[in-house]
Design a protein around this nucleic acid. Structure first.
Lengths: 139, 139
DNA sequence: ATTAAATTGTAGTCGAGGCTACAATTCTGT
DNA sequence: ACAGAATTGTAGCCTCGACTACAATTTAAT
């Protein structure tokens, strides 16, 4: 039972993570779209995620409440400073995970898919280990 | 746009994964509890996951529909052959991920938490690379 | 400038996973 | 054997992420 209590904490964490994963995916996507196009519209995100514009709409509302995004009705979506910082951190983390998977011999396609799933569950400490390993392999 | 279509596939996959993660967590938990105690009851799972017994109840019903578990009203929960196989695969995969994290220098506590999050997103191919890496480190 | 197309917003629905409150069943102790 | 405790089941509600259908606004074209 004490053991069970210990066990429940990681699981709770996993569940909570799910609620922030989407936010991270969104800011990453917004950053990416905003860099190629001039501005990021709801439709772009809907296509990007393969989801209806309605879903995107509410998500953007949520991101706005969290101060990650600023937008007005019928206007494009922009990242706030906070949102940009998060996007950058996510992009870096994503890249680290992806490069790490390549470095240990995963083929690029599988690495791309797995990185997508793994990136949200990597603690800073583990991430640092990934960096070290990738460096080591490159020598 | 063609790029966006390509992008949406991994995201869809990620979303679908979430629906199977819980099933995997459950069979793993049931296997673990069943090995220490004699039988696994709803309450045990509720404590294990830090969740109400009602939630567990419905989850177990779902697992039963999927043929992973067999149970009767007011009786303990047992894994079917199919459920046991899944549990074993999950346990092995979990262990591989955990040992791998340790091998690359992540401390045990962080490794335990991260393994919990990562395990569900590792393709067989990546898993194999983890195995190789862990072996290499042990030499 | 006005209509047609594209984009965005709103209303209402659904399933999943979570909860509380209460009812039913099984287990335990005396 | 029977009362009380523990366990399990049921009813009904909530939130979140997804959808369709329809309304409103903005953009583009003739």
């Amino acid at each position: 039972m004490t053991e069970h209590a210990k066990q429940s904490l990681p699981h709770r964490r996993t569940r909570h993570d799910h609620s922030t994963e989407l936010a991270e995916d969104y800011v990453e996507a917004i950053a990416e779209i905003s860099s190629s196009d001039r501005n990021c519209r709801i439709v772009d995100l809907a296509k990007y995620f393969g989801v209806s514009h309605v879903t995107v709409n509410r998500m953007v509302g949520r991101l706005q409440n969290e101060g990650l995004v600023s937008t007005e009705p019928y206007k494009p979506v922009r990242l706030t400073a906070k949102g940009s910082r998060l996007a950058n951190r996510c992009r870096e983390r994503h890249e680290i995970v992806y490069q790490f998977l390549l470095a240990i011999g995963v083929d690029p396609q599988a690495a791309a898919i797995d990185a997508e799933g793994i990136e949200h569950h990597v603690s800073p400490e583990t991430l640092e280990c990934f960096v070290q390993q990738t460096k080591a392999k490159q020598c």
